[in-house]
Nucleic acid binder design. Structure first.
Lengths: 115, 115
DNA sequence: CTAACGTGCAACCATATGGTTGTACGTAAC
DNA sequence: GTTACGTACAACCATATGGTTGCACGTTAG
């Protein structure tokens, strides 16, 4: 059985999401395609690297669910997926909650000391 | 000159933050040490891998600013750093903003069509 | 003082990652 | 129909990553 967290993502899916975001080129592709969809070759033209390299970056993003690819004639249209961003935010939110609960426990300790 | 984004982090710093979060063991260390600080060997005892491996994971997290390490006798106390989590959230917020601004532009288009 | 503990670090290994070039193939344009 | 375009994919390479073991060294306990 695959372990899933509260957000409904497996550990592996979370790994892929953060891994995909850990590269400047890929973050830029997400930014671009969230604002306005683009074909793979259109994206490739924007970076100083081979078409195949950009193609790989898009594949990594697609594997993480951060973008989707839709065939359109001979082109593949890439669109940023805001849902995946939301899921990543949800993950970070949980860390903040843990931190807050720690603060609460510290407050409890102080309250006890006051008694 | 190092390029910095609106959050005040260089591209490289952002890479390190997401890279550090792209590993289940490291995310677990962050969770643990956000809730309650722990020594490196205490952490090492919690995972089925060598002390050195855990030590490396802590080093990666420290390099990303996600945890801090404080000497205490012969131990090193590891604490999760909630500020770094907040910065990562700030980054994802910007993506959401881009998405929203896209929606706004689409709304504008529709509004024009309605006229 | 000596033994045990906690840590840091180097060397090593297998695999993953990020890039390249080259080839093949469907689609569009002429 | 032929040519050019957009994409996919394989092979290859250098480097990064995630793990190991072994050793050195400061600190604490007996």
């Amino acid at each position: 059985m695959v372990v899933r967290n509260a957000i409904g993502l497996s550990d592996d899916e979370v790994n892929r999401i953060f891994r995909a975001l850990a590269d400047s080129t890929r973050r830029d592709i997400v930014r671009r395609t969230l604002g306005r969809e683009a074909s793979v070759s259109e994206l490739a033209g924007a970076y100083d690297m081979s078409f195949a390299a950009v193609q790989k970056h898009v594949a990594v993003l697609e594997g993480a669910g951060l973008v989707t690819k839709h065939p359109n004639g001979r082109e593949r249209i890439v669109r940023g997926n805001p849902d995946a961003i939301g899921r990543a935010q949800g993950l970070l939110d949980r860390y903040e909650q843990i931190w807050r609960s720690r603060i609460d426990r510290l407050d409890d300790l102080l309250a006890e000391t006051d008694e």
